[in-house]
Design a protein around this nucleic acid. Structure first.
Length: 330
DNA sequence: CAACCAACCCATAGGCTCCA
DNA sequence: TGGAGCCTATGGGTTGGTTG
């Protein structure tokens, strides 16, 4: 049997070709263990499907299953940020392993635009992974979006959230753990005089947690805390032996200031940043960092959402551990 | 056990009846 | 005649129940 040009084979065509009913085709192609199908019939169906180049119609199966098998990803991140691309890798990997596809909604400037909700309401997607932007960017009112998703009764998970809404699952960056790890590494290398450099005048959850991680590591080792605002560069570097920064861009400023003052990194000054950027390894010297487990976060977001979709989920807060990426600045 | 039937999903289009 | 409202078939699948 040959399909007319431009017409795709359906399950009926396969059934006719294999001389079975369409239900048998469905059982065979879905590898159902509920029904026993003889190996000969199974082979006949598989061959017919192959011959007719049959591809199941997801819209039709979604109609019956009442699931689109599509996850919506709403993101406010710039597409070229390493953490974001890593999150997407994790989301994509986990989704496709569960036979789900991704519908990506990139929101740019309209902070109160919740039109993505309509995709869930019209059945185009089953749930949402909401990737919140850094609070410091001031792009959106995260709590507002969460309220809207709750009111729309949309299953969702928040990645990189800065709020604490009841009944909501968050997969967050362990900001506190990132600076704790960076500081502990320098302490382990024998440093005692370690300063923290960051935009201290800003008061966002992320920055406060990072400062907390540094302070915890220092006080656990009974070492004096010393903090400098980025604006104090380059003067604050005089006499310093080691620096932890909140992010790679702050570390970049530190490296530039050190260069200006003729300070040799890492011989005279050790530097480590509490996050990794795509350019971190291309700085001079290549910057030692703490890597945010963004891929794992993406996977956990999908896992958590799928649990919600099967109705077996309790709201949770997960912060997978960060890891050191030691290069040449310490 | 192997295979099939029939109900079901839901938006849409087309057909039919009724009434003004 | 034509508009409103209702009913039914259709599309391509899945799955519980039934038959031989």
């Amino acid at each position: 049997m040959r399909m007319p040009q431009g017409k795709k084979a359906t399950i009926k065509d396969v059934a006719r070709e294999a001389k079975v009913s369409i239900s048998v085709v469905s059982y065979v192609l879905n590898s159902s263990t509920e029904k026993s199908i003889s190996p000969a019939t199974r082979d006949r169906v598989m061959e017919a499907a192959k011959r007719l180049q049959y591809v199941p119609n997801r819209a039709a199966s979604g109609m019956r299953r009442k699931h689109s098998m599509v996850i919506g990803v709403v993101s406010y991140w710039e597409l070229d940020v390493l953490v974001f691309t890593d999150m997407m890798k994790g989301i994509t990997r986990k989704s496709s392993a569960a036979n789900y596809r991704i519908l990506f909604c990139h929101r740019e400037s309209k902070q109160d635009d919740v039109s993505y909700l309509q995709y869930c309401q019209d059945g185009s997607i089953d749930g949402i992974v909401f990737i919140a932007p850094y609070e410091s960017l001031g792009l959106i009112d995260e709590a507002f979006h969460i309220r809207q998703m709750k009111e729309a009764k949309v299953p969702f998970v928040v990645l990189n959230g800065s709020t604490h809404e009841d009944g909501v699952s968050y997969i967050n960056v362990d900001y506190c753990g990132s600076t704790y790890l960076a500081t502990s590494y320098l302490i382990g290398k024998g440093h005692k005089d370690i300063a923290y450099v960051a935009p201290l005048e800003l008061h966002y959850t992320e920055l406060e947690r990072r400062l907390q991680g540094y302070q915890d590591a220092m006080s656990n080792s009974r070492l004096p805390v010393r903090c400098h605002d980025v604006k104090e560069l380059p003067d604050c570097l005089h006499g310093l032996k080691a620096v932890v920064t909140n992010k790679s861009d702050t570390a970049h400023s530190v490296l530039q200031a050190a260069h200006k003052l003729g300070i040799d990194v890492p011989r005279e000054l050790a530097v480590i940043a509490a996050n990794t950027e795509a350019y971190s390894s291309y700085l001079f010297p290549p910057l030692s960092t703490v890597r945010i487990p963004a891929e794992r976060m993406g996977e956990l977001a999908v896992e958590t959402l799928l649990e919600q979709l099967t109705g077996a989920a309790e709201p949770k807060l997960i912060m997978p551990p960060c890891a050191l990426e030691i290069r040449q600045t310490c």
